[in-house]
Amino acid sequence: MNTIIDTNFDFPNQTSLYKGKVREVYNINNEQLVMIATDRLSAFDVVMPKGIPYKGQILNQIATKMMKATEDLVPNWLVATPDPNVAIGHLCKPFKVEMVIRGYMSGHAAREYKLGKRMLCGVPMPEGMKENDKFPEPIITPATKAEMGDHDEDISREDILKRGIVSEQDYRVLEDYTRKLFQRGSEIAASRGLILVDTKYEFGKTNDGQIVLIDEIHTPDSSRYFYAEGYQERQDRGEAQKQLSKEFVRQWLIANGFQGHEGQTVPEMSDDYIESVSERYIELYENITGDTFVKADLSNIQERIEANVLEFFK
């Protein structure tokens, strides 16, 4: 199936192009950004060799919907979405931290806990917890942002301030926005029969100094969801939770001997497996948004994107 793995457009007044793990960002006249969500799949901070059909569209459309559902709480960078894979917004200078917030002891936190650690990013984790138990209060466990292919690293609030990565005044705003967004995201998830387990937010400053939410929000790439129905019963029986995130990809990679460590090779993904991942992403979209997914035309994605972006800038 046709996927979009790489772009190399030359838009009017384009000044630069940045390629992240999944998104490609075109700077227009140092005022606006054209962000293209590709179909690249990243896990363990490694980009997989094959793309996933519709993945970029799914991430872009979930993020757009969630930005609109939270803009009364936290200002964001978004101006328009002229194409299923494209978001256009204000140029921002990103903060070099990802604001990770965890309501439950899952994923990375659970892996650290199993190793005997009771402190994550300078935040204590209570004794006697089981994997996927709810924390008494959500905890913020920031990570330093990595360039493509490098691992993001855990960092404490104290280190962020001590190293001058973010000023104390700005960091207070980031923490406040993170908690508000997570609260709203949890309410939206609950209305869909889901639990928002953990997620990450990224922020930047506009040219006039306003702190705004950027990048994606509440997508299956940036967030972990559980199905609410049966959650407690599964916890009581010590069973794995029914997840709605890309954790299923990570688990498949682990089962096939890959966790992003040096010397490991990414396992071959068959066409059938790629299609099954695409179907899971569509399921994620419909569960998270409550909308039926409408597949975009894949016959020539590059031409479609270019035409829609040029039409917007007319």
Rank of each mutant, 00 (worst) to 15 (best):
E137F: 14
S106V: 03
R172V: 14
G164W: 08
L196I: 00
Q169S: 11
D170R: 04
L181I: 15
H151N: 10
R172E: 15
I188K: 09
V173R: 11
L120E: 07
C121T: 12
L196K: 09
Y171V: 06
G185I: 03
P142T: 02
D170I: 09
Y177S: 05
I195M: 08
E131P: 08
K145H: 06
K130S: 13
G193R: 03
D152I: 07
T141Y: 08
E202Y: 04
A110L: 01
K205C: 00
S186N: 07
A189P: 02
R111H: 13
I160V: 15
S106N: 11
E175A: 00
S167H: 12
D176E: 12
I155Q: 13
A109N: 07
R111P: 15
I101E: 05
D170L: 02
V173D: 06
L120D: 06
A190F: 11
K130M: 11
T141M: 01
C121A: 08
P138I: 01
S106T: 08
I139G: 01
K134D: 15
F203D: 09
K114W: 10
L196S: 07
G128S: 03
I188Q: 15
M125L: 14
L174P: 05
E168Y: 10
Y201W: 01
P136G: 04
E127G: 15
Y171K: 06
G128A: 06
C121G: 05
V197K: 11
G204D: 01
P124D: 10
R163M: 15
G103R: 15
V197M: 05
D152H: 06
F182M: 09
F203S: 06
M105V: 11
R111L: 09
G128H: 10
D150P: 14
E147S: 13
D150M: 15
T199K: 04
I195Y: 00
S106G: 12
R111W: 14
H108M: 14
I139S: 03
R172H: 12
G185D: 01
K114R: 15
D159S: 12
A190G: 10
I165F: 09
S167M: 08
A190D: 12
G103I: 02
I165T: 06
P126M: 06
T199I: 00
I160W: 00
V173C: 10
M148G: 12
I160M: 07
K114N: 14
D154E: 13
F203A: 02
Y171G: 07
R179I: 14
I139K: 00
R192D: 03
K134G: 09
P136M: 02
R102T: 02
G193V: 05
P142Y: 00
K205Q: 15
